[in-house]
Each structure stands twice: as structure tokens, then as C-alpha cells.
């Protein structure tokens, strides 16, 4: 997939290791701040770029995709067997190929989050201390079983078949939910998602808050990145942890002041453009045959997943 995102947005800043030498620290927290801000801006650009392409899924009405998202995420949360979860995963993989997404970067993100939130968080439950069952991989053998208050530690500690099944289920569920939501996000622009939510009777006031907030997160993320870069460029060597804390607190307070000032400017701009208490977000276009057909197919496949 051709990428039009400028290279400077995709390159990661250099990462400096921390040094705890005598209460002084290197500036890794500044690097982390730059990285965090850059990542948010990059995510926004990449999503916008893939969602704006002229491909099959990008052309489907956002309402169909938002209903698809909610329906399939509920299916994923209701299914309790590995085969169904694997089949849903394969289906989303096929959809992402059809949608011409960059499979490598798409699944890199999905697998990274699923590994942390799905696998790592659930992994200890595979042990027979948490999930009782048939041990298929013994890890430790204690001299005797122990009883500590309400906790029981068996003589043999190992991974159980039931535990591994549970961890696999959670990891797959997490992976499927993430891939479905990222798939919709990569094929639908944010304003279209908002219009689709309006069609689902979410109040205009709430949608307007979300829309404005979303836009200003990117603007302020750039300001945060610039502040960190400015600090980094003025630093030679190390700074004390106390100075680091003061600097970060001062910058957050500065951001607060800036957001409140911007709020007044926006209010004036909105009033000058005729904004009144009656908030109106214009609805989406009429659904065409392509939308109805793809919606019906996705619904049918979803029903099959639900009943297998």
C-alpha cells in the first residue's frame, strides 16, 4: 500500500535510557513525551489516510460499518468457544485484505495490544493455582501443599488444559474485538462515524463535544510535542528529577490555560458563524444498493457466527 504520510511522522524519536545516578535522571521522560505525542498524531494521519482511500469498504456507508462494529463486537463477547473466535478472526482478516489495508501494520498493532491486554494479563490464570484442572505442563513441584489464609497452593504447580483454553479464549476475544474496531476505523473517517452515531440517535450535543475534542486533541498533541522538543533542544546532559517534575507540572498547567483560552476563542468563532443553543449535525446520505447488499451480507454472516 502506498503511504503518503510524511516520513518524519512515521519515524520514531531516539530513545535515551534512564540513569538513576545520585537523584539525577537523564531526559527519558521528555523522549517518552515526544514519542507519545508523535504516536497520537501519526495514528490520526494513518487512519485518516486509509479511511479516505477509494476502495470497496471505504465506499460503504458509515452507518452500515458502525452497526457491523457493534453487532460483531457483541458476537465476539458472547461466543465462548475457540472455533467460533478463530473463524471470526479469519473473517476479519479476509475483510482487511478486501479493504486493501496494510496487513502488516494493521496486525502489528492488533497483535501488540492483544498480547499485552489479552495474553499477558490472562497468562497467570493458566496455572492450576487459578484454574483447576488437568495439568498438561508441570512447572514446579513443592514438598507439600500449602494453605495461606484463603489461598491454596497445590504441591504440583503447572499449566492446566482448562487454563490454557481460557487464556486462548481471552486473547482471541481481545484480538477479534480490536481487529474489528481498527478495521472500521481504518475504513471510515471520523466525521462519518459521528454522522453514523447521529443516525443512531446519540444526542447532537454529545457528538459535538466528541468532535471538537477529537480535533483539539490533535492540535494540542502537536503543541505538547513541540514543547517537549523545545525542552530537549535546550538541555545539555542531565536535569534533576525535581526540575523535571516542575517542568512537567508547569507545562500541563500551561496546556490547561491554553485550552481554556482556546475555548473562549472557539465560542466567539461559533457565535460569529450563527451558532445558537440549537445544535445540529447534518445527517448522512441516503443508503444505496451497495450499502444494503453489504449490510445484509455482513448481517447474515454475523447470524451464522452467532448460531454456530
Amino acid at each position: 500500500m502506498k503511504n503518503n504520510v510524511p516520513a518524519f511522522l512515521l519515524s520514531r524519536p531516539s530513545y535515551e535510557p534512564r540513569n538513576f545516578d545520585k537523584g539525577r535522571l537523564k531526559t527519558s521522560f521528555i523522549e517518552k513525551g515526544i514519542h507519545h505525542a508523535a504516536q497520537i498524531i501519526q495514528t490520526g494521519y494513518v487512519n485518516w489516510e486509509t479511511a479516505s482511500k477509494d476502495d470497496f469498504f471505504q465506499g460503504i456507508d458509515a452507518r452500515v460499518k458502525v452497526i457491523f462494529l457493534l453487532f460483531y463486537i457483541i458476537i465476539v463477547s458472547l461466543k465462548n468457544d475457540l472455533i467460533s473466535e478463530v473463524l471470526i478472526g479469519v473473517f476479519v482478516f479476509i475483510l482487511s485484505i478486501v479493504a486493501s489495508l496494510n496487513i502488516f501494520s494493521f496486525y502489528k498493532r492488533v497483535i501488540f495490544f492483544s498480547f499485552i491486554f489479552g495474553f499477558l494479563a490472562a497468562a497467570p490464570s493458566a496455572l492450576n493455582i487459578i484454574t483447576k484442572g488437568h495439568i498438561i505442563l508441570p512447572l514446579f513441584h513443592l514438598s507439600s501443599a500449602h494453605h495461606l489464609w484463603i489461598y491454596q497452593i497445590p504441591q504440583e504447580i503447572g499449566l492446566t488444559k482448562e487454563g490454557i483454553y481460557g487464556v486462548s479464549m481471552l486473547t482471541l476475544r481481545c484480538m477479534n474485538s480490536l481487529s474489528i474496531s481498527l478495521f472500521v476505523l481504518n475504513t471510515t473517517t471520523f466525521p462519518d462515524i459521528i454522522k453514523a452515531l447521529k443516525a443512531m440517535l446519540v444526542t447532537d450535543a454529545f457528538l459535538m463535544v466528541i468532535t471538537l475534542s477529537y480535533k483539539y486533541i490533535f492540535i494540542f498533541a502537536k503543541i505538547v510535542e513541540d514543547m517537549h522538543l523545545a525542552k530537549k533542544s535546550r538541555l545539555v546532559g542531565q536535569m534533576s528529577a525535581v526540575d523535571g517534575r516542575r517542568w512537567a507540572a508547569g507545562r500541563i498547567a500551561f496546556m490547561f490555560k491554553k485550552t481554556t483560552l482556546r475555548c473562549e476563542e472557539i465560542m466567539k468563532a461559533m457565535l460569529s458563524r450563527g451558532f445558537s443553543d440549537n445544535i445540529k449535525i447534518y445527517g448522512a446520505r441516503k443508503l444505496c444498493l451497495k450499502d444494503w447488499t453489504s449490510g445484509a451480507i455482513l448481517l447474515l454472516i454475523g447470524m451464522i457466527f452467532l448460531y454456530i
Binding site: F29, T211, S213, I252, C263
Partner: peptide, 15 residues
Amino acid sequence: AMASAFSFLIMMFNI
């Protein structure tokens, strides 16, 4: 909207 953006931004500062 500004308060939400600020809430988001707080998490971007590593201290």
C-alpha cells in the same frame, strides 16, 4: 470539548 482534550493530554506527560 476543551476539558476532554485536556483530560486526554494529561496522560501524554510522563513525570
